[in-house]
């Protein structure tokens, strides 16, 4: 188990937690398969120790860290966030980790750094779907944030959930959690973080730019071309309780993050 300080306020929702069992068996981690149960089924042998993270690009302190060394001085905290998937389901998860801003400050991005780009491990031996001809994502999985989004106190790097280390299917050993954006922005099993001057390429946007934008903010008013986004299913549900509820602007974090997008047309920058 890992020790974590508790935080209140926007970092801590009082909603009922999604049970651990559901959090670790209902996953989208396409590197391990396309069904929700595939990641928990096929990721158990995933090797996360040793793990290194490369910090590169437009910064004064580029480095490659062993995760262990990197985490040692970190003060870990627990946060309870809503997670809203673009597929219209949502969970409430207690994460353990530290603010992304801590890492960014350490790296000291220079004046050219406008964006932060993230990459998941590329290792077809361990991640079988990366070899599949049927999974048409251009691996490695990539994501990115604008610098002000990345520096926002809600943006979080998680190394655990429910007070324990992250299971592989949830993005071990380290993953991003951006609670006001659709789940696919919260990239898993990160090996590279790069500061860039231009907007980085992101996996889903590369695949279907008209369906998945770079920003991917949770927005009940902007629908996915193939399904509405104003409602969601809170998991777990049963056959007779639908868990159906309204989706909130910025997944309910509008007071905290709304100012980041002032003056932006969110229907265009979806």
């Amino acid at each position: 188990n890992i020790e974590a300080a508790e935080r209140g306020g926007a970092f801590w929702t009082n909603e009922a937690l999604t049970p651990y069992q559901d959090v670790v068996t209902y996953n989208n981690f396409y590197e391990f398969g396309m069904d929700k149960g595939d990641p928990s089924r096929y990721a158990q042998e995933f090797e996360v120790d040793p793990w290194s993270i490369e910090i590169a690009g437009e910064c004064d302190n580029p480095a490659t860290y062993h995760l262990e060394d990197f985490l040692k001085p970190q003060q870990l905290e627990e946060r309870i966030y809503r997670l809203r998937c673009v597929e219209r389901w949502s969970m409430v998860i207690p994460w353990v980790g530290f603010p992304l801003a801590d890492l960014i400050k350490k790296a000291q991005p220079n004046s050219k750094a406008k964006y932060v780009a993230f990459e998941t491990l590329l290792d077809p031996d361990q991640m079988p779907a990366q070899n599949s001809r049927f999974a048409i994502i251009d691996w490695p999985y990539r994501e990115g944030l604008r610098m002000d989004e990345a520096m926002h106190p809600l943006a979080f790097l998680a190394v655990g959930l429910y007070g324990d280390y992250l299971p592989p299917q949830n993005g071990a050993p380290i993953r991003l959690v951006v609670p006001w954006k659709y789940g696919f922005k919260s990239i898993k099993s990160i090996v590279r973080i790069r500061f860039t001057e231009t907007e980085p390429q992101t996996a889903w946007n590369m695949l279907q730019p008209q369906e998945y934008g770079f920003y991917a903010n949770v927005n009940p008013n902007v629908h996915h071309p193939r399904w509405r986004q104003d409602m969601e299913t809170r998991l777990p549900r049963t056959l007779f309780s639908s868990g159906r509820q309204e989706t909130l602007m910025f997944n309910g974090y509008g007071d905290q993050v709304g100012h980041l997008y002032e003056g932006m047309d969110l229907a265009r920058n979806f």
């Binding site: 068996t25 209902y26 777990p236």
Partner: peptide, 15 residues
């Protein structure tokens, strides 16, 4: 699966 609720977090979708 439906009766014994073994279909996971979203049994309706699974069914």
């Amino acid at each position: 699966g439906a009766v014994f609720n073994t279909l996971g977090a979203d049994p309706a979708k699974e069914l």
